[in-house]
Design a protein around this nucleic acid. Structure first.
Lengths: 151, 151
DNA sequence: TTGCGTGCAAAGGTTTTGCATGGCA
DNA sequence: TGCCATGCAAAACCTTTGCACGCAA
């Protein structure tokens, strides 16, 4: 069965994910960082393992505008499944938004547009508070912005 | 200077864009449709001209999850800049949503989360009505769903 | 020992580029 | 005629896949 063995490569990659936090990265980022550390990991292995992790929900995939697949670590899949994410197009930061208004939007899209919005796949893109020139945002102790605003 | 000459290929491609409305398409779509019409246009030419149009803002580029670049004609940049897009993760269809609720969301994210949402970059991902098992959605004559729902 | 995991190289697919030719002004 | 535009083929990229070997359990 898949993911049965614990190997050096997997451990290295998991360590990389830990250290990376939730900032996005490419396969190249992994390969080169491993190289710098002197812990070489084959490119196919990185692709394959990230694919596995994506399937089980602990990393997320999306396409950058440059056509390079970007990955991002989701520390707690169950916890992150219920809320949405905003990505800053300038600094690349990924923010979590646990906002009631997003539920309203989901319901609306379903009822009025027949579209079932997927919180796991959707990333709201824009400029975060810092990059937008505002004050530093309070992203909360664990990085999740909780908001009960309902309109 | 670029875009100086009017050629058969450019005229054909512009005609294609007109007819296509705002529905998205790939380079292959263009090449094959031209072929069917008996008006062959080289693939590189399509890439190059679309790149030019993208630079001047009359087409927009997206990256599908399958790694194929999707293009979309922006008849009126101001008009399409103001609405959002939903992509079906199963069939890859790109839908336009001109929905007042999205404005509400934008304003809310700005006011409460300090996040400036970018309609051009953001794509809502989920399942479209067809793929979700519902009836066929009415995507409107030009493929744009207009909705004045305000809550 | 068993069979999953890894790495290399090759294949596959998309997009870009070099260069000679074609065609607009 | 002067140059931009085009098309072909090759190159450049990114990702996937086949296969033999390595290694965890």
């Amino acid at each position: 069965m898949r993911g049965e063995y614990s190997t050096r490569q997997k451990r290295e990659l998991l360590k990389f994910l830990q250290e990376r936090g939730m900032r996005h990265f490419s396969v190249d980022d992994v390969v080169f960082e491993m190289q710098d550390r002197g812990e070489k990991v084959g490119r196919s292995t990185v692709y394959r393992y990230l694919e596995q992790l994506a399937a089980q929900g602990s990393v997320r995939k999306y396409q950058s505008t440059q056509g390079v697949t970007q990955y991002q670590h989701v520390e707690d899949a169950a916890r992150c499944g219920g809320h949405f994410h905003m990505m800053c197009s300038r600094c690349g930061d990924l923010l979590h938004v646990d906002c009631k208004l997003m539920d309203t939007l989901s319901n609306h899209l379903m009822a009025e547009h027949g579209f079932m919005l997927d919180p796991r796949e959707t990333i709201l893109v824009g400029l975060c508070e810092r990059c937008n020139g505002g004050e530093a945002a309070d992203h909360g102790a664990d990085g999740v912005e909780v908001c009960d605003h309902r309109l």
